[in-house]
């Protein structure tokens, strides 16, 4: 069922299983995520979408009761490599060791915006500073570029020194997108980014994503199935931690997908 892509895949996931205590969140999931395009992931609540993203950027390590099995490769480099289930906090011994360095390669946007309690400027400069960028001019440049990309620059350019937490919900969400872009990620993960923002802003960000996909791989997890349809070339449908179907987006949404559950989900019968 895996559709062939003209691009070689950026991320390869093989038999990935993640459990929180005894409860499985992902069961033996395998898929390839193509390079430099928007890849949609749809599925109802509790289907394991967020867990998948957490595993991709290795923040799953921070969940004390999680255990992980299977492999994740990014550019053929093993991020997770655990033939047998291992506690997530010991993943440094079963995959990539330099987790902090790795997370800087992945941009992550959470469902609800989290402006860190510092100025707008410092929010965006946070990751570059950690990565050792000290020169003011260089930081200025990064901040302006990222805020512009996130369609926020015009609104905040005169008040970069106000607290990021003082912005409105939609602005904060764009701030988190700017922040996720600040370390020039190879992969940008968006987890239901439009929950907290209005439709107009959502459309502006979708435009931004269309532009960005030439530079990076974008994984778009969304509850709004139409959003996947607008943006993604390929879409995966996940249900109860299992991959039901992965195909060209149009095939998924055509109403004639291979699996009847896909048709039911996209036409709003359940989910």
């Amino acid at each position: 069922m895996v559709a062939t892509s003209q691009n070689p895949s950026k991320i390869r996931i093989e038999n990935l299983g993640v459990s929180y205590g005894p409860d499985p969140a992902l069961r033996s999931l395998s898929m390839d995520i193509p390079r430099n395009e928007v890849f949609g992931i749809i599925g109802p609540a509790q289907s394991g979408k967020t867990t998948l993203l957490k595993t991709l950027n290795r923040t799953i390590d921070l969940v004390p009761e999680a255990s992980v099995k299977g492999s994740v490769y990014i550019d053929d480099e093993a991020v997770v490599d655990a033939p047998e289930p291992v506690p997530a906090k010991s993943l440094t011994r079963h995959g990539l060791r330099d987790v902090c360095g790795y997370r800087r390669r992945i941009g992550m946007v959470a469902p609800l915006p989290v402006g860190l309690p510092m100025t707008i400027y410092d929010n965006v400069a946070f990751a570059p500073r950690q990565a050792g960028v000290k020169e003011r001019g260089q930081l200025d440049e990064i901040v302006e570029r990222c805020l512009t990309q996130a369609a926020l620059w015009d609104e905040v350019k005169d008040r970069l020194t106000t607290l990021g937490t003082k912005l409105s919900g939609g602005q904060q969400q764009r701030l988190t997108i700017a922040r996720a872009l600040s370390h020039e990620p190879e992969v940008l993960c968006l987890d239901e980014f439009s929950i907290a923002i209005d439709p107009v802003t959502t459309m502006r960000i979708e435009d931004v994503l269309r532009e960005l996909q030439s530079e990076m791989t974008i994984i778009l997890v969304t509850n709004l199935v139409q959003q996947a349809r607008r943006l993604a070339r390929q879409t995966a449908f996940i249900l109860n931690g299992e991959l039901v179907e992965l195909d060209d987006t149009e095939a998924i949404f055509s109403g004639e997908a291979n699996d009847p559950r896909t048709n039911e989900f996209v036409s709003g019968i359940f989910g």
Binding site: N57, T59, R103, A110, V114, L116, P117, F126, A131
Partner: peptide, 27 residues
């Protein structure tokens, strides 16, 4: 301090010390 700050900062590649020094103590 909300856990979301910790997740956001660590998702951005902050080490534990950077998280404490740059995010938790100011917050």
């Amino acid at each position: 301090v909300p856990d979301s700050y910790r997740e956001a900062a660590q998702g951005l590649g902050a080490t534990r010390w950077q998280l404490i020094y740059r995010v938790l103590l100011p917050a």
